[in-house]
Design a protein around this nucleic acid. Structure first.
Lengths: 140, 140
DNA sequence: GCTTGACCTTCCCGTGACAGGAAGGATTAG
DNA sequence: CTAATCCTTCCTGTCACGGGAAGGTCAAGC
């Protein structure tokens, strides 16, 4: 299989597949012409990666998941721990987003949204009376 | 004021302040020694930026907010539109995270989490029976 | 045989919003 | 005078790729 076919079948851009090879997530063979020659097993791994990425796992988490997937002697506890840590990450992100949303919604609620310049949103950002609460760090 | 003092007062790292200057968000003066000389107005802008970033606005959104903030002839409708667009962005992100969470939670629920290798999480990622639903794109 | 178009390859730069650190100059306290 | 703390610029790295250039390969059709 050439890269376009695996890309279509795995649902990943060819660029992404080349990148995954570069960082060692997959190791496709090479044909005499220099083209990558993907086996069924490569396709499986790529589909696996596409789904794991789709669930928000980072590349490094995907790498560990893939290693566990290929390790017949794995303990499911290890997989579960990884998944639960990721669930916690998502929970934290959601909480952070909700906190930001709540603050901003309060500001928006007080804004007339007309032609006049008076704006509690800008006032809130300028004075900090309502913005940035809840231990929300600048970002990162 | 030197950079350290504004950094402490605005609650931003000095690195970030230099970066904000580099991309044109602020334009502090310069002393004879080459040091940045921050005015009160620069400090205000930086505090404004810190709060806007804390609410999740991107740098470009912050740039527009700052422009509106400084425009005495602004219409509050423009500010409100920007804020509401951002609220929508956050809503979408939350929905995406929740969808991923729900899928992963289903997989985790079926996993024994013991010493045995059998794992519905890995099976789900491999077979795609439950992962990646709801139009969730690989990421981005 | 030749061309056309669709593939494939590598390589390099750009993204967003900074962080880390090196190398060197300025200022201040003791 | 020295030591500590500040300040400066510049370069590299992050994360997960995307865009595009320059050039090689392959299959189909004339």
């Amino acid at each position: 299989m050439n890269i376009k076919e695996v890309a279509d079948r795995a649902g990943l851009p060819a660029k992404t597949i080349r990148y995954y090879e570069e960082i060692g997530l997959i190791r496709p063979l090479r044909g005499a012409n220099g083209y990558r020659a993907f086996r069924e097993s490569d396709l499986h791994k790529l589909a696996f990666l596409a789904r794991a990425r789709g669930l928000g796992f980072t590349i490094e988490e995907c790498r560990r998941l893939l290693a566990l997937y290929e390790d017949r002697g794995r303990a499911s506890a290890d997989v579960k721990a990884l998944a639960e840590a990721h669930l916690d990450d998502m929970e934290r992100k959601i909480a952070e987003l909700r906190a930001m949303q709540a603050t901003l919604r309060d500001l928006v609620a007080g804004c007339a949204g007309d032609q006049r310049p008076d704006c509690p949103i800008l006032a809130g950002l300028a004075e900090g009376t309502a913005a940035g609460r809840g231990g929300t760090k600048p970002c990162h």
